[in-house]
Write a protein that binds this DNA or RNA. Structure first.
Lengths: 129, 129
DNA sequence: GTTGACCCTCACATGGATGTGATGGTTCGA
DNA sequence: TCGAACCATCACATCCATGTGAGGGTCAAC
């Protein structure tokens, strides 16, 4: 597919698809006329990129973790340098921290919303508690 | 405490503490000489802000969700406008998405790391699975 | 063969979080 | 009283993800 379709299917501006390519997160090939040609699988990858970006990871990090998320993992095991592994461990832990932080705060928001949605009497009861 | 101590205790540059104040995420009072004076509780709050920022939330949103995370929730229930509630619900869902995305990818990284750390035979076994 | 809808490559702009430094006031101990 | 170590404001700089648009090819349909 070409960039327009990918853009629509992923809800991602073309500009960003080109940007992700520039950051070497994706690597479309080109048809004779120079148009980018995207593989079907790239759809999922773009979604993943967006999700991670939205979760606060910079493209530099995403670029490093993407390769080890591909299903046939073993291919990439060979070229795992010690620094690479250290980076991944660190990033894994950072992601865990993020998950914890987000979960904690989301639960608090949910709890608040539940309280607000509850009728006034129950809210008053909470107030007196 | 003054800004220097808060900075050290939270690992946050002074610059950013002032920035968060400018964004009205925190509201220190001032001593006679104009120095910012921070309450003990602000330490946790700053950590929370940093965590949320790191998880990809903009200060604008953080500002909205912080009030409903304070323990005596009920105080803020009264001034909950419908738009406010809608915003919170949306943000709660966005946070859930982020948690899912992060968890998924973190688990994949962890799995990869386990595979890399494991000996070659077990990696081969995974490959054949 | 022209038009419209695609695509390309620049390149400059913006917004948000952060860095850095200039300039100057306050406090406190040597 | 002087100097170090705080603090203040202000302003400009940077990085990164994104927006926007100019100037120009490609191609299919009419």
């Amino acid at each position: 597919m070409r960039i327009g379709e990918l853009s629509e299917r992923t809800g991602t501006p073309r500009r960003l698809l080109r940007y992700y390519e520039e950051q070497t997160l994706i690597l479309p090939d080109r048809s004779a006329n120079g148009y980018r040609e995207y593989d079907e699988r790239i759809v999922d990858r773009v979604m993943q990129i967006r999700g991670l970006l939205d979760a606060g990871l910079p493209t530099r990090i995403i670029k490093q973790i993407l390769p080890c998320l591909d299903k046939p993992k073993v291919i990439h095991i060979s070229d795992a340098t010690p620094e690479m592994i250290a980076t991944l461990e660190l990033e894994r832990d950072r992601m865990t921290s993020r998950v914890n932080c987000l979960t904690r705060n989301r639960d608090a928001i949910a709890e608040y919303l539940d309280a607000v949605r509850g009728d006034v009497r129950s809210a008053g009861a909470v107030a007196r508690a």
